[in-house]
Design a protein around this nucleic acid. Structure first.
Lengths: 155, 155
DNA sequence: TTGATTCCCATATTTTCCCGTGTTATACCA
DNA sequence: TGGTATAACACGGGAAAATATGGGAATCAA
């Protein structure tokens, strides 16, 4: 069992008539080795699907419980938003998942989907939308060189 | 055997003439795998039914014991409200539960109910009411991004 | 008995499983 | 180094299983 696992790379896969998509083999390996499951939900900030391991959401659930009052409105809204949208996705014997229509619609995905690694998370985009987004991000990175220290402090 | 048990997703089910509702299959799986039971009660803060595993209420009981004075009025009220209202709901062989009228009335549920995952808990709403509530929460989340983003990054 | 609750069966739909095939990637050998 | 054998992968399609949901019979209580 390896100690570190990161969702990486960018993989383009087809979405078949039944709505099935192959989860990239590397991602499947992570699921198997961690014994966790993939969870997907609509990104709050972009027209894409976001995914991570269930472990991560479990950690989030614990954090919310610990940091907010059991009956607080804040906790209510936050958990509704996060967990109401998320769903476990187990892949079949050939490595495919079936994404909910709600998610596909949000990401404008029809017949193809592109998986983009983000470390502990990953995103699933409509390929054309991702192409534009990547350009934008790279251009911005050239102007404002990203600060690792800043990100490090926040996390 | 998985390690994490989170109520997730949003699923719409019918309430039949006898008052029966299918508990989402994912929720049933959690009950089976944990060996605990589903407990439901009227939400203290919203017109909906709230549910969780009996284990969680046990944890809540411990928290109340630890955090409030044994004879405090506050504790009295809280325990009355929660435990006086809560009830165990076991599902039949086809996976359905029969919610008490008291709960259905509180949530204005008649012929359809929507289950909303909240991590350790879940809620059951009248579908139209939930649609409005979700819009409200999402709109608020987009305005006040920081708190969500902060938790999101921490996890 | 009347009303309510539980249990069981039937069915349409959705989801999952499984097999076959072509393609790509990896390993191996001369 | 070039070429071939082997394995892994993506993906189409049909079969099998699971799920939601309606209805009836059996059980129980007031």
């Amino acid at each position: 069992m390896r100690k570190t696992f990161l969702f990486m790379d960018t993989v383009l896969n087809k979405v078949d008539a039944k709505g099935r998509v192959s989860l990239p083999a590397d991602y499947r390996a992570i699921v198997k080795e961690t014994g966790s499951e993939i969870v997907c939900y609509r990104s709050l900030s972009a027209p894409c699907i976001e995914g991570c391991l269930e472990d991560l959401l479990d950690k989030l659930a614990t954090q919310i419980e610990d940091s907010l009052d059991f009956f607080s409105a804040e906790q209510d809204d936050l958990t509704n938003l996060v967990f109401g949208d998320a769903k476990r996705y187990t892949f079949d014997s050939t490595g495919r998942i079936m994404l909910a229509d709600k998610l596909l619609k949000h990401a404008q995905i029809t017949d193809a989907a592109i998986f983009v690694g983000k470390g502990r998370k990953f995103q699933i985009w409509n390929p054309e939308n991702w192409a534009k987004e990547e350009q934008k991000i790279r251009a911005a990175a050239l102007k404002h060189r990203p600060s690792v220290r800043r990100l490090d402090n926040e996390a």
